[in-house]
Write a protein that binds this DNA or RNA. Structure first.
Length: 225
DNA sequence: TGCCAGGGATTAG
DNA sequence: CTAATCCATGGC
């Protein structure tokens, strides 16, 4: 382990934010997909990209092939890139999808992977070129249903606004800190990440330093922060 | 019209 | 180990 995480989040405060977000926005029903494999494809396609564009790309894919690792590899990188063009970075992502599909086929099937411990599975996913920490955790949580917290830019932005972090913390430091402060429940971690995204999109989080007018402010007030 | 989205790899300092 | 840079489409 890379010992000594200095970052420590307060359990009650963090869980209070979760409850308030849930009360405000309700269940988010993530991940929007029809199969674990589709979740994982989406996790790669959504990298630094609007989800709406990803939906188009997936629709194009499904129009041509049945969504499976075999089919994705069979159509070839060129064709694959054209199909996923709406998702942006389409050449890069075509390669990443192929890398990932090769990994899945080498592993056998999803059931084989499901037998791995979460740390081993995480390491395996991270070994794929094009799958970084956030994408791997998306897959772990939303496809494999492991109790991990997904850190993203919205998490950093919101936690910074609340005053819990400086912003420069490493990915793992943040992830483990949240996981230590929250129950290890897939259901809750699923909603928590989705709610943070939902809240960031719904509120005035672009370019507004103090966030005085959005619901985070009311959350902070209720929490007396 | 310009900015930026549910990142990651690569390169440079 | 941190900081830029590249990848690219579509919505507001």
């Amino acid at each position: 382990m890379t010992g000594g995480d200095k970052l420590s989040l307060h359990r009650e405060s963090l869980q209070q934010v979760y409850r308030l977000l849930y009360q405000r926005h309700g269940p988010q029903h993530w991940w929007p997909a029809n199969s674990p494999f589709e979740v994982m494809v989406g996790a790669i396609l959504v990298q630094n990209t609007n989800w709406q564009n990803v939906e188009r790309a997936i629709a194009c894919l499904e129009g041509e092939i049945r969504l499976s690792p075999q089919q994705v590899l069979e159509i070839g990188e060129e064709h694959l890139a054209e199909l996923i063009r709406p998702a942006g970075y389409f050449r890069v992502k075509a390669g990443r999808l192929r890398n990932f599909c090769s990994y899945l086929l080498d592993a056998g099937d999803l059931d084989s992977l499901q037998e791995l411990s979460t740390p081993d599975l995480r390491a395996g996913l991270l070994s794929v070129k094009g799958v970084g920490p956030e994408t791997a955790d998306d897959m772990l949580l939303y496809a494999f249903e492991r109790p991990v917290f997904v850190v993203d830019a919205y998490t950093r932005r919101i936690f910074s606004r609340i005053g819990w972090i400086e912003g420069g913390e490493g990915y793992e430091s943040l992830r483990l800190s949240v996981q230590r402060a929250m129950p290890a429940q897939v259901r809750m971690l699923n909603e928590f990440h989705a709610l943070l995204v939902r809240h960031a999109k719904a509120s005035c989080h672009k370019r507004i330093p103090a966030c005085a007018a959005c619901c985070i402010a009311s959350i902070c007030n209720k929490m007396k922060i």
